[in-house]
Design a binder for these strands. Sequence first.
DNA 1: GTCTATAGGCAGATAGAC
DNA 2: GTCTATCTGCCTATAGAC
Lengths: 211, 211
Amino acid sequence: MPQGSVSRKVRAAQTRAALLDAARGLFSERGYLNTKITDITAAAGRSTGSFYEHFAGKEELLQALLAEMEGAIDTRMRGLEHPRDHDLTDREQLRDHLDVAWTVMRQNRPVALALFQAMVADDPGTGRAWRDLREQTSTIREHLEYLVERGHRLPGDPEFVAASMGAMLVTLNYALLTPPGGEDAPDVVDTLTDLLLYGLTGPAPRAADGT
Amino acid sequence: MPQGSVSRKVRAAQTRAALLDAARGLFSERGYLNTKITDITAAAGRSTGSFYEHFAGKEELLQALLAEMEGAIDTRMRGLEHPRDHDLTDREQLRDHLDVAWTVMRQNRPVALALFQAMVADDPGTGRAWRDLREQTSTIREHLEYLVERGHRLPGDPEFVAASMGAMLVTLNYALLTPPGGEDAPDVVDTLTDLLLYGLTGPAPRAADGT
DNA sequence: GTCTATAGGCAGATAGAC
DNA sequence: GTCTATCTGCCTATAGAC
């Protein structure tokens, strides 16, 4: 393989990375929908035409960002078992799950923001919103199904309950991208944990027996 | 006042109403973001120029639709007292509130859809998402504040808890605009009531005393 | 107030030289 | 692969006749 060819590949990869980086920055600043392809190429210091050598359009670039993020998460999670039999009615375990989800969204702000906007901007008839919600909550759903199998009684269908939890999380994350009080509320995860675990009635002393 | 002038006013009102009607239909079919002003005028059987005689733009038309909806609700609710001291930890009262909210969104599908898309499409930096969520949940927030005043312990700040409940509601509504299984799930309100009231642990037997 | 016609401004996407 | 240049289509918004 000739050297020139290698160098070419490297430069191509650099351009691709530059586009992805620029996109992240712009998505975070102005949002996904308000960012034009020409904005991205300009910020990356590349030409408009160069963009289409790497991505068919903005949506495909977003999928690439998503893949990158998922790759990074998988790497960090490597080796950590994630068995199906977590008990989400255990406060610590529920809190862990919510904390991971929240942290991932916060640490990947541009991607989370863009995915949410893309989900909502899509023609509602396509059903993308429900599909996205469903996919993003598949882990929670499995844990809930496990609970049901063990005889626990949930407020409703596990799939729907999981989607409801996800809807709350992603929408709050979006709404809090610009923190209302200036700084990010520190106890979001704890509050949501308690709300989802015990509801408005709050943790209450249980009867001794399981009647 | 001359007759010609009256007739003119009437026709203007008809055009305005036709535009609003057409917008409702198109928003419901294709969504707010994908509907162009020219689509609305075409569907209403009017010219493009006519639109700007009544609205400065699409967003202003949406605000008009919102005002219309709120007017209709106020009319229906006229005479019904809505005191601040509702107890949302009472299942029936919480269910009633969620049911009203859900029914309003379902019966005003185009407006609810459009408002949600408009909220998300706005530049995130404006903080519109949080503001909208806050406003739409002001009633719930007041009830929760009332509970806190009476000594009840909530999972967190009433404003944030109310916003969380609202986030869940409006996002699920949006995701379920195209029902996944074909028909609309009938027990959405009941499931959300139980989830928000008791959480994942479900209603449980309480201890006899309040220790 | 409503119409026709059009100006004007993007922004997506491609052609062709290097 | 990357660039410059451009074409194309779409949509907002206005001008001017009726």
